[in-house]
Design a protein around this nucleic acid. Sequence first.
DNA 1: TCGTGTGAAGACGTTCACAGCT
DNA 2: AGCTGTGAACGTCTTCACACGA
Lengths: 210, 210
Amino acid sequence: MEKAEIPKKAIYRLSIYQRCLTKLHENGKETVSSSALAGAAGVKPAQLRRDLTYFGQFGTRGLGYSVQDLRGAIREVLGREQLQPVALVGAGNLGVALLRYRGFEKEGFEVVAAFDSVPETVVSRGIAVPVYSFKEISPFLRDNGVKLAILCVPGEAAQEVTNELVVAGVQGILNFSPTVLQVPGAVTVNNVDLALELENLSYFVSQGEE
Amino acid sequence: MEKAEIPKKAIYRLSIYQRCLTKLHENGKETVSSSALAGAAGVKPAQLRRDLTYFGQFGTRGLGYSVQDLRGAIREVLGREQLQPVALVGAGNLGVALLRYRGFEKEGFEVVAAFDSVPETVVSRGIAVPVYSFKEISPFLRDNGVKLAILCVPGEAAQEVTNELVVAGVQGILNFSPTVLQVPGAVTVNNVDLALELENLSYFVSQGEE
DNA sequence: TCGTGTGAAGACGTTCACAGCT
DNA sequence: AGCTGTGAACGTCTTCACACGA
């Protein structure tokens, strides 16, 4: 992997650029300048150009970028060429909430299965996804080539379940549990910690009072 | 505000340190060294010490930190001395999911009200929080001194609703909508973008295949 | 001339390494 | 002796400013 020098934040911004490009595309725009696109994405033009050059040269000097082409290029970089299957592990309060939410599917991810330690207890109202026991994790993920997992188990169980996911071949984990996960270098963990985010806001709110 | 030089990431780490301290406290530990606490939090000892010195001196040289005292100090820094009321705006799929989740309350935040453009349509099963119309946002938030909001409206409505929240005195917004919000400098926005996180993982997963 | 691509500078955050207190 | 607190070095990301091509 010779791309070690790409900032992780740049990958996030790539997704944002893509959204903006989609909007431009829907509005019939065919080309866009770095300043226009950067403005829409909430970054500086130089940053946008730098981010893109991590992956190649996509623009035409004096003209800008082709909305169509750039969109395709970013999609390819992000590995979103084909639909990615996702497993959801831990169908407790938050897990079921996310299953009901289904916002992932709109964005091109398919939650193909859910797993819970006690699958029978999962209230299945409004859930279109099958719920299996933890025992099925390894065989199912392997057989279906699932490489992405959404982890919503309680903090105490998180590491243990994670180990199982890693053995089953999962390479990316979206971790909603309040636990710092230990994983091999080849596995990526993105943490979404709702309590942490609120606590963080709390700090800035109390700042303002002084 | 003379604390402009504190990295935002440091505030997040503070929350993590606090969780570790709580665990240590429950285990009856009275003091802890920077290396032990840093290990539990998944950071380097020097980073932990640096983070703490942004806010003062809490340790004893040759000895370490008092678990109890440090916990109190961090709590104070984070502005978590008293219960913070939170409003949830946008009771669609995700909004209702989060109301059902109730994981915030465990961590000391109270969701005091929800708002929706069509409050009548909100399925109230399992929701203990009153749902009001958007019109009520300003008076309610003002009267109840709510300074934190969780925003779960669709992307198109996000900026408009945000403006209203800002006028109503909200200073911190946890934004689940896929929109880059424009807010005055005194307002903090933390973005939680589930699709973005999955897309990001998708990049790293496809990296591994090459 | 216009806007991209990029070397160089700058800002920011992290880590080192050790001075200094207990 | 042990561990914190911190100046200084380092690495990383961002921004500038301009050369270069369309």
